[in-house]
Design a protein around this nucleic acid. Structure first.
Lengths: 205, 205
DNA sequence: AAAAAACTGAACTGGTCAGTTTATATTTCT
DNA sequence: AGAAATATAAACTGACCAGTTCAGTTTTTT
């Protein structure tokens, strides 16, 4: 069995190229990043890069995909470990907020929003691998809790949309626009507690 | 009294330039817009444009300022006309949501977020003339209602941050990324009612 | 009507950048 | 070791674009 382990021929320096591209795109955005910067960062020749990717746009899309994937893996996981609804929601809120406010999360958000006109598929990729997964997992948990009689929700999709929104309250937009320092633990806790309180006030059984 | 009515000499075609720039920037973004496109759209010579604005960046900032101003004027007004808290909140929510979902509102949001790294002052300008004004007006109304014993809020700033966030639930991001049709009246009403319900559930006296 | 101010059009500069080419070198496979 | 695949460096092309310049025209002011 010495069959090639991938149909797509990727060459020895595939990872280097992607790493370099990730660094430069995340630092400078799509327009701001020049291909020469990327090859310098990657320690690779321009010809090599272009032997992997036919153009800058497709390289960017590949990087964006990877970043979205990594993002959602880190931020989203099954909601388990406690039987108390408030605990579970608080944990979920902390995870989400942590990612929303991270440098990577903010920068991905900025770039995706800014380029979503130019590259519609990137917007979809981002949404599916991030917000949509959060929604799905939250939805599942809420449904389970409703079935168990612990929550009382008529429109579960709406509720699963509201909760993440509450976790951003006031902080996220300011951070995206670079208008404030990262929030302290205390500030985050205040927002999260406010979110959970409000959510349970409305939907608690 | 034939004194010039403005200290800054603006020339006859000032408005033409700004209108053309507004059209092209809002259509193509900052990088996507070429100065030649703008002068063509404005029906003005390049030399004229550069006699008003020293460079493309400052022209863009001027346009962004105007757009933010127009935005907040349209979306934000005193919250009056009814004594019923629910009515007032519902009206406010409708106005906000209408703007959030409008073509102009979405495009301004995309461009500002995308360019906020390159032009930090634009982010601030946008925030002050938009979200911050909404926050201030909402805050004032909430305080008044608390004083009148109609609401019961311990952290008014948090509450004033939560409400607009609830009004976006699920819709805004999808629209920004171009992932769905504009919501129907029914969908908007559903989100708004959900927002007001949840808000009053938590803070109603 | 004369003078002053504003505008025009078109060519030009200098710089950047995506993507290509080529001749050469290194790595990997057999 | 020899062949085949992969990578390199560097120069090059073609296009785009911000910003300048200037000789000449139109509009406004006096």
């Amino acid at each position: 069995m010495n069959a090639p382990h991938a149909v797509i021929k990727q060459g020895r320096k595939w990872d280097q190229v992607l790493d370099g591209a990730r660094t430069v795109f995340m630092r400078d955005g799509f327009e701001g990043a020049s291909v020469d910067d990327i090859v310098r960062e990657a320690g690779v020749s321009k010809a090599t890069l272009y032997s992997y990717f036919p153009d800058k746009r497709l390289l960017f899309i590949e990087v964006a995909k990877m970043e979205c994937q990594a993002q959602s893996d880190a931020a989203v996981a099954q909601l388990e470990g406690s039987d108390d609804v408030r605990d579970v929601l608080t944990t979920a809120a902390k995870r989400m907020t942590k990612f929303f406010m991270s440098d990577v999360g903010l920068q991905v958000h900025r770039i995706i929003v800014g380029e979503s006109q130019r590259f519609p598929e990137i917007g979809r990729e981002f949404f599916e691998s991030g917000p949509a997964r959060v929604h799905a997992i939250l939805r599942k948990f809420l449904q389970k809790s409703v079935d168990a009689g612990e929550l009382n929700i008529d429109d579960i999709d709406l509720a699963a949309d509201q909760f993440p929104e509450l976790c951003k309250a006031g902080l996220h937009l300011k951070m995206v626009l670079g208008l404030r320092e990262p929030p302290s633990e205390a500030e985050i806790d205040r927002v999260i507690e406010g979110a959970v309180d409000m959510f349970l006030c409305k939907y608690g059984a």
